[in-house]
Design a protein around this nucleic acid. Sequence first.
DNA 1: ACCCCCGCGTGAAACGATTCAATTATTCCG
DNA 2: CGGAATAATTGAATCGTTTCACGCGGGGGT
Lengths: 335, 335
Amino acid sequence: MTTSSMKDVARAAGVSVGTVSNVLNRPDAVAEETRRRVLAAIASLGYVRNDSARQLRAGRSRNVAIVVLDVSNPFFTDVVRGAEPLVDSAGGVVTVCDSGEDVRREQRHLEILEEQRVRGLLITPVDDTSAERLERLTAHDIPVVLVDRGAGLHPHCSVAVDDVHGGRLAAAHLVEQGHASVAFIGGPLSIPQVRDRLAGCREVCERSGTRLETFTSVSLNVGGGRQAVEQMLRLPDAPTAVFCANDLVALGALQGLTMHGVKVPEECAIVGYDDIDFAAAAAVPLSSVRQPRAQLGRTAAQLLFEEIAEGKGHTHRNVVFQPELVARASTAVDL
Amino acid sequence: MTTSSMKDVARAAGVSVGTVSNVLNRPDAVAEETRRRVLAAIASLGYVRNDSARQLRAGRSRNVAIVVLDVSNPFFTDVVRGAEPLVDSAGGVVTVCDSGEDVRREQRHLEILEEQRVRGLLITPVDDTSAERLERLTAHDIPVVLVDRGAGLHPHCSVAVDDVHGGRLAAAHLVEQGHASVAFIGGPLSIPQVRDRLAGCREVCERSGTRLETFTSVSLNVGGGRQAVEQMLRLPDAPTAVFCANDLVALGALQGLTMHGVKVPEECAIVGYDDIDFAAAAAVPLSSVRQPRAQLGRTAAQLLFEEIAEGKGHTHRNVVFQPELVARASTAVDL
DNA sequence: ACCCCCGCGTGAAACGATTCAATTATTCCG
DNA sequence: CGGAATAATTGAATCGTTTCACGCGGGGGT
């Protein structure tokens, strides 16, 4: 009634458990007639394999986890969707974990995932402090691939987009349109991506003698953007252009500006980052720095499986993609 | 080096495995000094509990799964975020699965989840045919709570929003604004929510003598909406208002109309469904039927834990929320 | 006739934690 | 000071698989 085990199946089919296991795992090692009987027993008992027992024996699970900064950010769901098919066809299952940009939550997830002996881990770390926690996994033979973050000195494969360059693209675009002062909105600065995008932006601003103000948002989402822009508007001479660390923040900034009657792009231009699908559909279609989202996920999964396959003799690879500026109405100087 | 087990810890600390287990699970049953020694051994060996073994013994895992139709739809991520804190504080972990509106993928997930002996399941079923597959889980003592779907005759708790009424609200709003013909865009019709929203819409249209055309989209996303609207525009006298089965479709419809130079709302009004955050931020802010997304998730998790706690003597509850129309520019007749 | 191999099956030993009855050491009380 | 209650620890059984060395009977080759 409740749950039946292999033993029950074996009894019902009049064979040993070893044979039942064989029916499930190497069907051709067992005679036609026997197999039939066993399968019938399985069906009639409603037997379902117990994965815990399997995993215990195997020493590891078939799950691959992906830890993202924010599941409700379409950027990350696109990355996940990029990775899924690969994991899937490798017979794995994807577990999505949301760290919510919070180191403690990230840490908790890592602990649980390690207890679960996941087969591998794709992660966008919250922080630079995540590194040592990740090495612990690596030391325990759980391959880790960094997503949207270069590996630097750390012993992992990684898939990243050149964020410094992305920052440059955004800033250059704004400077080119004649803006004499630019605001950067994003935060917290502990997030590496934010720092890099800012760095690229700063580089261009300094070189071109453009004033740069930075406004730190609490979080990389719509609320954060709205709030930071409020702060900006309190300034006597607010910048005429903002570069936001991601599209959610940009959308929030757009809302904030509109609420205060500031016209976009006429009185204030906006560039976002990620080019999520919603960016193009926004009230004022957003210019944005595009990242190959799905490909990021796909490649990450690929690197993970390579590492799994190659085992000990594996050398880490760090793949870097180049971002691309997509100009839309939110920075259109004419029309 | 690789992975150490309780036995290793026990040896290192000079105690039995039973004691190590006690240190982990009922610390006060073990003497101060011993505990210290064991903890030291754990730390120095880098010991990590093996969850498979735990689960095997316990007979079930501590994971709660949630199966959604589309992870990249913010509606669902909001539902997930609503459920997460509760599961979390109950010591569980959430596994998010994406069925992609596909029965076979859903089925695959269910099989895997059952093998994993998840503690419980929140699911938005793809289809009416999902029902019997779900009863299998219930029969195996895995509580199931239906999300965004009434339970009807099925032996589950459920959390739903009155979709028929939502359909009525949308249609009534459009009719009230004087539209003489309305298009419904959504699909596939095998998805119950789509059918219900259409039913409510149809009811109001018939009562008010409004012409109703329905356009079936392949999928409930932006692409589906864009495509369906193309089809609509080929009609000699296309409707002057569309009601979309969700906001993604509505956003797609908006894009499609704009691309064909149809002005929204002047030449064609749009009402969406879900009121995701992006709806308000769209090129033309979308009128939409709001659902209490986070609360849906929260309540679902609550029901699940009630069922787990009450065990055999549990009676199923079916909670229904009422949707609410949010009118924005996409249906604004004046201004 | 002998041996070996092959195809099918068997049974028991892992895997790593939890649990509980049994054991030993300690303290308390009359 | 004996005996009982209390505290701390042990060891073995158990969960459900997978795996592997081994048995057994029947051909085929020489």
